[in-house]
Design a protein around this nucleic acid. Sequence first.
RNA 1: GCCGGUUUAGCUCAGCAGGUAGAGCAGCUGAUUUGUAAUCAGAAGGUCACGGGUUCGAUUCCUGUAACCGGCACCA
Length: 648
Amino acid sequence: MSQISLTFPDGNSRDYPAGVTAAEVAESIAPSLAKRAISANLDGRHIDLAWPITESGAIAINTMKDEAPALELIRHDFAHVMARAVQALWPDTKVTIGPVRDHGWFYDFDRAEPFTPEDLGAIEAEMKKIIAARDPVRTEVWDRARAIAHYTAANEPFKLELIDRIPDGQDLRMYWHGDWQDLCRGPHLQNTGQLPADAFKLTHLAGAYWLGDATRPMLQRIYGVAFRNRDDLKAHLTMLEEAAKRDHRKLGREMELFHFQEEAPGMVFWHPNGWTIYRELESYMRRRLIAAGYKEIKTPQVVDRVLWERSGHWEAYRENMFIVEVDEEGAKEKRVNALKPMNCPCHVQVYNHGLKSYRDLPLRLAEFGSCHRYESSGSMHGLMRVRGFVQDDAHIFCTEDQIEAECAKFLQLLSSVYADLGFDIFDIKLSTRPDVRVGADEIWDKAESALEKAILNVRNDFEVDPGEGAFYGPKLDFKLTDAIGREWQCGTFQVDFNLPDRLGAEYVGEDGAKHRPVMLHRAILGSFERFIGILIENYAGKLPLWLAPRQVVVASIVSDADDYVHQVVATLRAAGLRAEADTRNEKINYKVREHSVAKVPVILAIGMKEVENQSVSIRRLDSQGSQTLSLEEAKNTLATEATPPDLR
RNA sequence: GCCGGUUUAGCUCAGCAGGUAGAGCAGCUGAUUUGUAAUCAGAAGGUCACGGGUUCGAUUCCUGUAACCGGCACCA
C-alpha cells in the first residue's frame, strides 16, 4: 500500500498508509486527542473522522473547542436527528433537505397534515431520546443506481429529485444515524451522543417552497437553534428577547410614533412624535444633498401609463403598481394612470426640459420622492416594507468620463451620512453585468472599472456579486450594521445606460453633436420609512437628542414651581429645543418613570430649590443621578447637543 | 401570493365542554404638594376583527373575508 504524507498545523509532518482515517491520525498523535476529536480539516476541507484519506496534504484535527467546525457538525447532526425524530413520530413524512443556517438549522418536510407548535415539544423529546441512545454515525459511498433504488423503494420522491440534480460522476454519500439514513454530503459526528442535549431548541414552523421555487410544492419547515453548551443557547435566547424589545413596531406604539390600520395596509399614519423624527431626518438629508451639489425637485404622484410604457416599467412591473383610472369628460375610455412606483422617469422629464450642454453636467437632481408599490400581502413588515414610502432619491446625469468621480463623491457623502446617523460600519457589494443586459461590452467594462476604482479610493474591501447587476448597468449596494450586529441594505448606486436612451435624454457635447448622458441612480437612506425603522431598532428607541421627538420634559416637584417650569420651557423652546412641561399633580418618581419609559432623553426636575436659584436639576435617560445647572447653562448645553451633526 | 398561527377594553393578556365577558396598566373623578423609574381611593370602559351557517341560544363550533405575526416567494 502506498504512503502519504500529512502535515500538521505546527508544520511537522508524518507518513501514513493511504486510506488512513483522521481518527487514526488523531490516535497516532495522542489517544487523548483521539477521544476529543470530532472531525478534521484536510487542505481546508471539513471531513469526517472516519473518512479515508488517500492523498498527502495538510491536516488539522478538530475538537469541540474549534468553534466553527464544532457548530457546523452539531447543527448538521441535529438536522439529521430532528428528521429522524419526525419520521419516527409520523412515518408518512417525506424528507427533503436540512442545511445548517444562522444559529442552527432547518429541515423541510412534506406531510399532508400540518405540524402544530405543540408538535415541536414532542419532536424535541424524541430527539433527546435519540441523543441518549448514542447511536453510531456511519457512512458509505453509494452509486447512483443503488441510491435511486433505495429511495424509490422508500417512496422518497424529493430525495430522488435531489439525486437527479447531483452531477454525474459525483459520489453519493449515505449517512446512518443509528438505523435512520439520509443522503448527505457530510461531514458528521461519530455518534449522536456527542450532541449537547441541553443546548438546542426547536424555534418555529414555517412554510417553504421546495427548492425555493414558488411554482413547486410548499413544504413544512422546522427551524432549530443549537450551540456547544447550554450557556451559549441561553445567551442566544436572551439576545432574541433583547431584539424583540427593540422591535420598531412595538416601540412605535409605545412612543406614539405611527400606526397602521386595515383600511390602508402598508401605509404609515405618522403621529406627531414619529413625524418629528421624519422631518428632522428629511431636513438633515436636504442640507447634505444641497451642500453636495444636488438640486431638489418635485415630480407628480399620478402619471399616465404611457410614460411607464416608454420607460419599460409597465411591462415589467404592472402587477405591482397602483392604478388610478379616471373618467375624463367626453372621453370614450377611462384614462389609466399609475401612482409612481419610482422617480427616475419623471426626473428624466425634468432633465429633458430645455437643451442641456456638456457644461451642465454632471446635473444632480434630487427628490424626496413619494412612491407607491403594491407589495404582496405577505411581504409587508412594519416600516421595513411598506406600500407607500419616500425615497431619498436622486439621479445624476453625467458623461461616461464622470462616472468615477461622481461615484467617489457619492461614497464620501454616504459614509459621512451613515457616520452622522450612528452607523460606522457598512459593507459594499459590487454587482456586475448580468447575462441579459443592454449596452456594449466596452461601456460595461468602463462602468464596472469606474465603480471598482471609486470604491478602492475609500476602502479596499468589498464583495463582488458577479452577474447580479441590473440589466441597465452595474451597481453598488451598501449594507450597514446596527448596534446588535444585524445588516440592513440601504444605499445604492446604479449606473444606467438604458433609461436615458429609452426616454431620449441628450446633451450637446463640446463637438456640437448630441450625446446620451449616463444616468446614475442613487439613494443613501433608501426609504425614510424603513430607515426610521432601522434607527429606532438600532437605538432601541433612545434616539440621539437631535432626532428625539420629545427632547426635554420639564417636570415640577411641587405646584408652587409651576410658573418657573413654564418659564424654563419657554426659554428652551426659544433656543430651538422640543421642550414640554409636566405640571401634573404627581410625584416626581412617577413623572421620571413615565418619561423614562417613553424614552425622553432629558428630564429637568424643578422644585423650590431650583426656583430660588434659577437653576434646573437635569436627569439623563438611563443615568442614575442628576446634576444641577443654571438655566442658562442647561439651555446652552442642550442646544449644542441637539444641533444636527452637520451643523455642529 | 403561498404555508402555519393570531385577532377579547387604549395597551398587555385571562376566560368560555355553547347560556352575550375579567385582570393589571393607561384614561376619567376625587384626595394627596410630593426631590429623581409606579401615592391612595372611586366610578366607568367591550357589536369578543367582519360576514354567513349550525343551534332555543354563538365571543366559544363550522365556513368565508380582512388585517396582523413567523417564515417562503417577491423587492424596479
